[in-house]
């Protein structure tokens, strides 16, 4: 069972406009799957359908064998969707450690525990340490989130998503507004966490996409016109035509 997320024959029309035209694709264990396409290709409509924010006209969305096509967003989150940079938002008065711990407490439903001390190093320390190491913030664990740089905040958001133990992570433009060296750092982090959780990546920065995505699907006019590795996509004629207007 390697297919974590499977989209089958997904269709969505807004009146005469076809936003999703019979989309099929999947996200497999251990991969970063990038979804690219020109503006207006229907990326955000597709994401919204995956998250359950809008309902597809027909087709199925399957998460680890469970048909979630008709579930509400919250239920999808409960089943293991994590989406970063849009719904999560760090608590700036909390430290990095506390922010991740809060997510862990929510995930493990230990919020009715009145007696364990969160200051003592025992409570969930190992799990949180491993997350903070992955996102490269262990050294700064006592720093309040309000003092973090833009890039570190993103790292923390990914940490929060990881603490929720998701089946997959959906990253929406994670590199927007980051400096070049920050982008390099994030690439390292993504490459590391994909082994635990596969990533569905939406990203405009093609250098990033081509360097870290294991697979790339190209969405044009609501249709996936190509799907494959970086080199396959780079040499694909249809893709060149869609982006460059020439063959």
């Amino acid at each position: 069972m390697n297919k974590i997320l499977k989209i089958v024959n997904l269709k969505k029309n807004f009146g005469a406009i076809t936003a999703s035209n019979d989309i099929n694709f999947c996200l497999e264990k251990g991969e970063i799957h990038a979804l690219i396409g020109p503006n207006g290709a229907g990326k955000s409509t597709l994401i919204k359908q995956i998250m359950g924010e809008i309902k597809q006209d027909s087709g199925e969305i399957i998460l680890s064998g469970i048909n979630i096509s008709n579930l509400k967003t919250e239920d999808r989150i409960h089943l293991g969707f994590a989406r970063s940079f849009q719904i999560t938002d760090v608590i700036s008065d909390f430290t990095i450690f506390q922010n991740v711990l809060l997510a862990k407490i929510g995930k493990e439903k230990t919020f009715y525990n009145f007696y364990s001390s969160i200051d003592s190093s025992e409570f969930a320390l190992e799990q949180i340490k491993s997350i903070l190491l992955k996102i490269d913030l262990w050294d700064k664990k006592e720093t309040p989130a309000s003092l973090l740089s833009h890039g570190e905040r993103r790292q923390l958001e990914i940490g929060i998503a990881l603490a929720l133990d998701p089946k997959l992570i959906l990253l929406d433009e994670p590199m927007a507004g980051l400096s070049l060296d920050k982008i390099e750092k994030m690439k390292v982090i993504f490459n590391q966490i994909k082994n635990d959780v596969p990533i569905l990546l939406i990203e405009h920065n093609m250098d990033v996409v081509f360097s870290i995505a294991n697979r790339i699907s190209v969405l044009v006019n609501g249709k996936i016109i190509a799907s494959g590795s970086s080199s396959e996509i780079k040499s694909n004629l249809d893709v060149r035509k869609a982006y460059l207007g020439t063959a």
Binding site: Q98, L101, L102, I105, G106, T110, F111, Y112, N113, F114, Y115, S116, S117, I118, D119, F123
Partner: peptide, 8 residues
């Protein structure tokens, strides 16, 4: 206050 409940 210092428990998981307190953090929540």
């Amino acid at each position: 206050v210092n428990s998981p409940f307190g953090l929540a």
